[in-house]
Design a protein around this nucleic acid. Structure first.
Length: 539
RNA sequence: GUCCCCAUAGCUCAACGGAUAGAGCAACAGCCUUCUAAGCUGUGGAUGAGGGUUCGAUUCCUUCUGGGGACACCA
């Protein structure tokens, strides 16, 4: 079965090179040539750099190799390409081999997609992909602390995590979406203290380890404080936990209502105490000989892995902190839990770029898990860091700070610019780039936002479908003649390859780029070709 | 100070080491008697600076300049 253009060409190239190598008595080696879509139509539709790869090996010029290769291509084509889907194979300076496709091929690809979509996705196209992308995958994203509202920054990780989870499950992985809730520790105590401060109370009687100037401020905290009554003898932690539960409910409703994300699992840090994983992790690390005591603290020898300093994982157990350990320790426990209990063969975490050092430490920890064979070798761990988003308003940067409480929330943003526009805007850029989110432009729904360009194409298609009540049961691909029609068809023909590459590389922004190109091809086509008035070419 | 990310058109962003660096917006010139103007067609406009590797560099290495971020017994 032929699923994608590149796969089809790939087979032809392999056959050609094999024949070539045999006659030239070259050792059989797998060559990592590429197949690329051509940027300029003059050269044909696709190209390969196979001649360059061979040239390096044979120490001849690529152009010379390409010329030598050409008869082998023609020979292989006779045998392989019986339908004549490859119209022409040509060489161009300085050594590219170009393929021009017969439109029939594109039509064939589409009709196989069109006539039986589910079979198309399940067939060989995805079948061999699962071992690369993981059968059982966990994507953990957002995981913001329940001490404030979700910010614009969470928007980037949120939409990216959702898109990655969706696309992996489309490709056949069993995907679990998870949110990790930090419901213990100093952040929670800080929240409790903040509430009391907002109520104008003194912290003196609580003996807090938090200074007032570290506490959260602003309307958000004031609102929570307004209808909160601390009972006597309630600790700061207890107050914080009670308030954080309320905040978590709020976060959950934003996530389901605004983000439209349905998490499979919400795991709390305190769950790791209850299920014993924190304890288990302590024991494991101690047995590994990677810990030592100093200054009344327990340290992990991360310097053994190249870290600049060892890290604290445990501190004296203060009241209210029993079993908590540091964030590093509980996160190691969490990941051990993911791999052992969850049994995932791929864990993807999406974190803000401020977690860079934490990421390095966690990679070390998982490496040690592999080394000690407490998780399986095939269980993989990866982190995608998303760079922070800079919020711009009135041409100026808006500082986003949870503590001062003037953060623009993601819920407000989604309401203002619309769900699709927000998702598009975030996903359009690769995660490791910095970008400015200009509130004014997004609010004004100006044409700076390419989502309208793409959506308008969708609107046009829809309106045609509504107006054209009669649907053809079977599309007739072979009657397209106009340049715009064929361009559009070829663009559609790229889709399986694009999707495959996005699935493998998790580069969601490439999918968005493709969408923009597809929309352009459609607008172009729509503008030039009458559809409803033509009888046969209904589509 | 150490480490990470980034630098491309007036603006926001693309470009798995490949050919003439692409889109959208903005500017300019055209196209609404049509399923169609949230669109189409055309024009002008760019790789921060210097070295290196390569047949070939926006992409890899290196130095510099300029932005952002991280360097906790917070998460």
């Amino acid at each position: 079965m032929v699923e994608t253009v590149k796969k089809y060409l790939n087979e032809l190239i392999i056959r050609t090179i094999n024949n070539f190598s045999k006659e030239k008595q070259l050792p059989r080696e797998t060559l990592s040539f590429r197949i690329e879509k051509n940027s300029l139509a003059d050269y044909g539709d696709y190209n390969t750099n196979a001649a360059y790869i061979l040239a390096k090996y044979l120490k001849q010029s690529p152009m010379q190799i390409a010329e030598e290769l050409l008869p082998y291509f023609e020979e292989a084509k006779k045998d392989y390409d019986k339908n004549g889907w490859i119209e022409a194979i040509k060489i161009s300076q300085p050594g590219f081999i170009n393929f021009t496709l017969n439109s029939q091929f594109i039509f064939y690809l589409q009709s196989s997609l069109y006539s039986s979509p589910s079979a198309f996705w399940k067939a060989g196209f995805w079948g061999d992909i699962l071992k690369d992308i993981g059968r059982k995958v966990q994507v953990e994203f957002i995981s913001a602390n329940p001490t404030g509202e979700l910010t614009i920054g969470n928007g980037r990780g949120g939409f990216l995590g959702l898109a990655i989870a969706n696309i992996l499950s489309l490709a056949g992985s069993k995907v679990t979406k998870e949110y990790y809730v930090n419901d213990m520790g100093r952040q929670i105590e800080k929240l409790g203290a903040s509430i009391l401060l907002a109520q104008g109370k003194s912290l003196d009687s609580y003996q807090p380890t938090i200074k007032p100037e570290e506490c959260y401020r602003g309307a958000f905290v004031d609102n929570l404080a307004a209808d909160f009554k601390a009972s006597s003898n309630e600790t700061l932690i207890a107050i914080g936990q009670r308030v954080s539960q309320k905040i978590l409910k709020n976060i959950q409703s934003v996530i389901s209502q605004k983000f439209k994300i349905h998490y499979d699992k919400w795991l709390r840090e305190s769950d790791l105490v209850e299920n014993g994983y924190l304890k288990k992790t302590r024991i494991w690390l101690k047995q590994s000989g990677l810990t030592y005591e100093k200054d009344n603290l327990t340290w992990l020898k991360t310097t053994a892995f190249g870290d600049s300093e060892d890290r604290v994982i445990d501190k004296p157990h203060e009241s209210g902190f029993e079993g908590a350990g540091t964030y590093f320790l509980s996160d190691i426990a969490y990941h051990l839990y993911k791999f052992q209990k969850g049994g995932y063969d791929r864990v993807i975490d999406i974190w803000g770029a401020d977690h860079y050092t934490h990421m390095q430490k966690m990679l070390m920890a998982v490496r040690q898990m592999h080394k000690d064979k407490i998780i399986k070798p095939q269980q993989k761990f990866e982190v995608i860091l998303v760079q922070l988003v800079m919020l711009v308003q009135n041409g100026e940067e808006v500082k986003m700070s949870k503590r001062s409480g003037n953060a623009y929330t993601i819920a407000e943003l989604i309401d203002e610019v619309g769900y699709d526009a927000a998702a598009f805007y975030f996903l359009e850029k690769p995660p490791n780039t910095h970008f400015n989110f200009d509130i004014d432009k997004a609010k004004a729904q100006s044409m700076d936002n390419p989502v309208y360009y793409v959506e308008y194409a969708g609107v046009r298609i829809k309106s045609l479908l509504v107006k054209n009540k009669q649907r053809l049961s079977k599309p007739q691909w072979d009657i397209l003649k106009e340049r715009e029609e064929i361009n559009l068809a070829k663009k559609i023909g790229e889709y399986p390859d694009v999707l495959r590459e996005v699935v493998l590389g998790l580069e969601i922004n490439h999918l968005l780029t493709y969408l923009k190109e597809l929309a352009a091809a459609y607008h172009n086509f729509y503008n030039n070709c009458q559809i409803l008035s033509s009888e046969e070419s209904l589509k």
